[in-house]
């Protein structure tokens, strides 16, 4: 579970089957397990109208067989979030009555899939989310605007401009990122130790 922090930090729930006719799932790694757990409560025929976009990442093949066994109308396995996002965007492009969106897995996956959904005009409050697995963060460097992916340490060095960033809990849905601010701006000779903080 994500610890209680500040009000811009997203709050995640537990996936539950919604009334609708088209169910789009986007999940990565341990998020596959969230879909399987939800499926136990799903009504008969629920997955006949489902499209599952799944990125196995470090979970490997643990969930791929059981997810396909749900017999969704469409099943796609992607090698990375970046590779899968165009498919999600294309799927969301035409607005459809009765469509429901479910996001599960790492914060990075939920954030980026949410961002694509917001761009398609879907209200964030209508989207089901469940966080599972890594709490590694996407971080926007407030200085150079570059995004560093899969951040597990505090502080972290910006992969674009090289500044040493303090990773705040302040989160932007629009950017799908936490904010990183130079940790030693007032005296760059101060180098704090880099420790694992998000896993």
């Amino acid at each position: 579970m994500t610890p209680k922090t500040i009000l811009s930090r997203p709050v995640y729930g537990t996936l539950s089957p919604q009334a609708g006719t088209h169910h789009l799932f986007v999940a990565d790694a341990e998020g596959g397990g969230a879909i399987l757990d939800m499926a136990k409560a799903a009504p008969e025929g629920f997955f006949a109208g489902a499209h599952i976009i799944y990125i196995p990442r470090e979970a490997g093949a643990a969930y791929t067989g059981p997810l396909q066994a749900l017999k969704p109308a469409q099943y796609y396995e992607g090698p990375s979030i970046a590779a899968a996002l165009p498919r999600q965007k294309q799927t969301l492009a035409p607005a459809r009555m009765g469509r429901r969106l479910y996001l599960a897995g790492t914060e990075g996956l939920i954030g980026q899939a949410m961002q694509a959904a917001l761009d398609a005009g879907i209200d964030h409050g209508s989207i089901q989310t469940e966080q599972r697995g890594s709490l590694a963060r996407r971080v926007q460097c407030v200085h150079c605007k570059g995004i560093t992916e899969d951040v597990t340490t505090q502080p972290v060095r910006c992969s674009h401009c090289g500044l040493l960033l303090f990773v705040r809990d302040h989160y932007s849905r629009r950017l799908a990122a936490f904010q990183g601010v130079c940790i030693n701006a007032e005296d760059q000779s101060e180098i704090p130790p880099i420790e694992e903080a998000f896993r």
């Binding site: 407030v142 200085h143 500044l163 904010q179 601010v181 130079c182 701006a185 005296d187 760059q188």
Partner: peptide
């Protein structure tokens, strides 16, 4: 904050 590393010192 964009320029914090410039004015922070």
């Amino acid at each position: 904050p964009e320029n914090y590393h410039k004015w922070g010192p």
